[in-house]
Design a protein around this nucleic acid. Structure first.
Length: 196
DNA sequence: AGCACGATTAACT
DNA sequence: GTTAATCGTGCTC
């Protein structure tokens, strides 16, 4: 599926996210995640993603059905699912597939593009390569937290959204990170994707 | 009401 | 390679 955009409307439409999650996770690589912050643009190219797909996927938060925390995953595609983990970190997902089917893509790394001065302060004292090379690092760099949980990335007034950018020449797939307690085959499914 | 654990990070040895 | 930090969530009693 291809999406064409004019110079003024580069934001990815809901149809982009209303597809199989693994397909969306790969298609998001190279696209630009943007957070409008105090009239300023904070952004980066999406460099790593992971797919979490439905109640059969035992690594997915929705595996035991709907709860207050994972409710956004059951909602319509194109919304943010932002959750708190390890008592200190925010992780950012984008909901995929049809409403009612719980699935999302975790954004795991960005290549910073805009708002570098803000990121430098938020991620101090780390050097630029360490500003957004992890799922909790990128939310800190872009200022993504609970306030954006459930946010509609496809609304005209969205503060968080994805803009179309050139697709990467190559995609590398591997097992998802940090789910060592999840049983096979889910633990080893190659649903982690990065620009290669 | 209590408790084990987590889609992580940073600082150590 | 190992480990502390830190707390909301959801399951069990």
């Amino acid at each position: 599926m291809r999406f064409l955009h004019t110079a003024m409307t580069r934001r990815l439409p809901r149809a982009f996210f209303a597809r199989p999650t693994v397909e969306v996770a790969q298609a998001l690589l190279g696209q630009r995640l943007v957070h409008l912050h105090a009239g300023r643009r904070l952004s980066g190219l999406i460099a790593e993603t992971e797919a979490y797909v439905g109640q059969d996927d035992l690594a997915c938060h929705a595996r035991r059905g709907r709860t207050p925390r994972n409710a956004p995953m059951f909602g319509p595609p194109g919304h943010a699912y932002v959750y708190f983990n390890y008592g200190m970190h925010w992780l950012c997902n984008i909901v995929t597939e049809a409403e009612g089917f719980p699935a999302a893509v975790l954004i795991r790394a960005l290549w910073p593009q805009e708002g570098l001065e803000v990121m430098a302060v938020r991620r101090a004292p780390h050097p630029p390569p360490r500003w957004a090379d992890g799922p909790a690092k990128l939310t800190q760099a872009l200022g993504i937290d609970r306030a954006l949980n459930g946010h509609d990335l496809c609304a005209p007034t969205a503060q968080l959204f994805v803009e179309a950018a050139p697709a990467p020449a190559r995609i590398v797939a591997g097992p998802r990170i940090g789910i060592d307690r999840v049983p096979e085959p889910w633990r080893s499914l190659p649903w982690n994707f990065r620009m290669g």
